[in-house]
Nucleic acid binder design. Structure first.
Length: 554
DNA sequence: ATACCGTTGTACTG
DNA sequence: CAGTACAACGGTAT
């Protein structure tokens, strides 16, 4: 039966009406795909109607004129666009199966609860998500559903493993090294199953009463101007694009079998050295499990292949590792009260942060990466390492949380667990502690590009720049500087700080902080941090004075 | 207590 | 340029 217009709330429905409910609601959040989608499969099983819903949260998409780049408060325009493209693709796939995507706007929990009240829904299906944002949301939704007698199905399908299982296996705490994670994880249990079961048709959409439903909005619909941004990311969102990219990536079996992350060229932009599947994995346009299965199939048929951590499968397992640690670590995204995070008295100087964020550090190789990040929303992972090290472990010595925020906004693939994990890693706050080891484009360039053209494609502006300029901007011969200035402009900034990969000064600061952490067994109070910061500043002052004195004597 | 290890190092010598 | 010495932290296994 079909319900006409709006319904009373479920606790006021007669038992007959409840019993007669025959539809399902699939709530898309991540997992924007048809293939390997257990929630969608379960929703359509034995259902007369299926309501495929995506809720657009104004908090996530509403233009924020005060943000430092075009976009909303939380997301840059590139990612918003990527999301909308993914939704268009999902809608068109659903239409081919006899259904369509219902777009609703508002606070997700309010909107969804209203749908459950008004529509013919017996089963509510959505992919399980470990991000704190969804964990909170899910509690609300689940508690409503159970009070209304609606069945909830929330399978783990975003990741290869259930982080909860791994943590349980490890005695309640997440593993903190990649190797121990590998041991605990083993092979995923579903590997022998045929995952790629896209439905051939779907039940029709039920009566939606008087709910306000729209098609997928354009960025103009959301209030953005057509020319808000000069250059947009060249990566198109959506499942179709994801599968196309996957097929292209894995068509070269030798490449897949021999993939070694550190050997790729981070500057190769038009033909990236990696698969650039991360944004599709982030939104679930591509199933990580399907990807994993494809890779395993290839490995089976070759004599030799690379292994984790550097292999392609290894990259997928890094994702699992960070998801697991992030899920099992309270306050994972901050320094304070974070069990696994070193307490370090970072600089409070926002001018340094701004210079880094706005690509005017005065180091073309850093600035080039930052411009590509802003304009294209994607940079090679090794390039991410370079700029993250530069911000936190050079003379800038800026808090990793601030760099994290910039990445979270600008990257089209920014993923809560992975982004925070990498910043913890690269700032030597957790997982990795060898603060004298830095990642810099100069060393990558030396290693991987004998022609010296290494950094060329980070940015079109830099593509014809002589390597001397790029590597050592302010010590290059005058003739080269002259040529470089023609390309970049006379007003190209002088370096904001001296930056000798990881400077002695920075190393000293970190060593101090580590000693403090050790002495206090990790329990470092705000007061301790303040004192240490004061001490560091006093030391610096002292050093400055003594240097002045020495000069005088000379 | 000690040795060894870690996704992709650095600096020097010849 | 290749080869070698060095540097260095916390976590884990022994």
């Amino acid at each position: 039966m079909r319900f006409a217009v709006s319904l009373p709330s479920p606790h006021r429905l007669s038992p007959v009406a409840m019993a007669n409910r025959s539809g399902s609601l699939i709530w898309f959040r991540k997992g924007l795909r048809i293939h390997d989608n257990p929630a969608l499969e379960y929703a359509s099983e034995g259902s007369k109607f299926v309501y495929p819903v995506f809720v657009i949260d104004p908090h996530y998409v509403k233009p924020d004129p005060n943000a430092f780049s075009p976009g909303s408060t939380r997301a840059g325009l590139n990612r918003i666009r990527f999301l909308l493209e993914s939704l268009v693709d999902l809608d068109s796939s659903l239409k081919k199966l006899g259904s369509r995507l219902l777009i609703l706007k508002g606070d997700p929990s309010d909107v969804l609860i209203r749908c459950l009240q008004q529509w013919d829904v017996k089963k509510l299906c959505f992919e399980y998500d470990t991000d704190p944002y969804y964990q909170d949301l899910d509690i609300k939704i689940k508690s409503y559903a159970s009070s209304a007698g609606i069945e909830v199905f929330s399978p783990v399908s975003h990741t290869l493993f259930n982080p909860e299982d791994i943590i349980k296996k490890n005695g309640g705490k997440p593993p903190l090294t990649y190797q121990s994670f590998l041991k605990l994880a083993g092979e995923p249990s579903w590997l022998s199953l045929q995952l790629f079961t896209s439905p051939s048709s779907l039940p029709p959409v039920g009566d939606v009463g008087n709910s306000e439903i729209s098609g997928v909005p354009t960025i103009e619909d959301l209030g953005y101007k057509h020319n808000e941004q000069d250059e947009f990311t060249p990566f198109r969102g959506g499942e179709s694009e994801a599968l196309k990219r996957l097929r292209e990536s894995i068509s070269n079996k030798g490449w897949v079998a021999n993939f070694e992350k550190p050997k790729g060229d981070p500057s190769a932009y038009l033909k990236p050295a990696t698969t650039v599947l991360s944004p599709y994995l982030k939104f679930g346009c591509l199933s990580s499990r399907y990807f994993y299965q494809c890779l395993r199939d290839i490995y089976k048929n070759v004599i030799r292949h690379t292994s984790p951590p550097v292999s392609l499968v290894g990259q997928l397992l890094w994702r699992e590792f960070f998801y697991t640690v992030a899920f099992g670590t309270p306050k994972f995204d901050q320094m304070k009260d974070n069990r696994i995070c070193k307490q370090i008295p970072w600089n409070d100087d926002d001018n340094l942060l701004d210079a880094w964020r706005e690509a005017r550090t005065g180091y073309p190789w850093i600035d080039a990466i930052m411009v590509q990040l802003r304009e294209w929303g994607w940079i090679h992972h090794l390039a991410r390492h370079c700029v993250a090290c530069f911000l936190t472990r050079g003379d800038l010595f800026v808090h990793w949380e601030k760099g994290r925020d910039v990445f979270e906004r600008l990257l089209i693939d920014s993923d809560w667990a992975i982004n925070n994990g990498n910043w913890l890693w690269l700032s030597c706050s957790s997982f990795f502690y060898q603060y004298n080891r830095v990642y810099s484009p100069v060393s990558f360039g030396k290693k991987y590009d004998p022609d010296g053209n290494y950094i060329r494609h980070f940015l079109p502006v830099l593509k014809d720049m002589p390597k001397e300029y790029i590597y050592e901007p302010w010590t290059a011969p005058a003739s080269i500087q002259k040529k470089a200035k023609c390309i970049i402009g006379e007003d190209y900034p002088k370096p904001v700080v001296s930056h000798d990969s990881a400077s002695k000064e920075c190393k000293r600061k970190l060593a101090e902080a580590y000693a403090l952490n050790q002495k206090l067994n990790g329990h470092v109070s705000d007061e301790d941090l303040k004192n240490l910061r004061r001490k560091l500043e006093a030391d610096k002052d002292q050093e400055f004075k003594s240097r002045k004195q020495q000069k005088k004597l000379c």
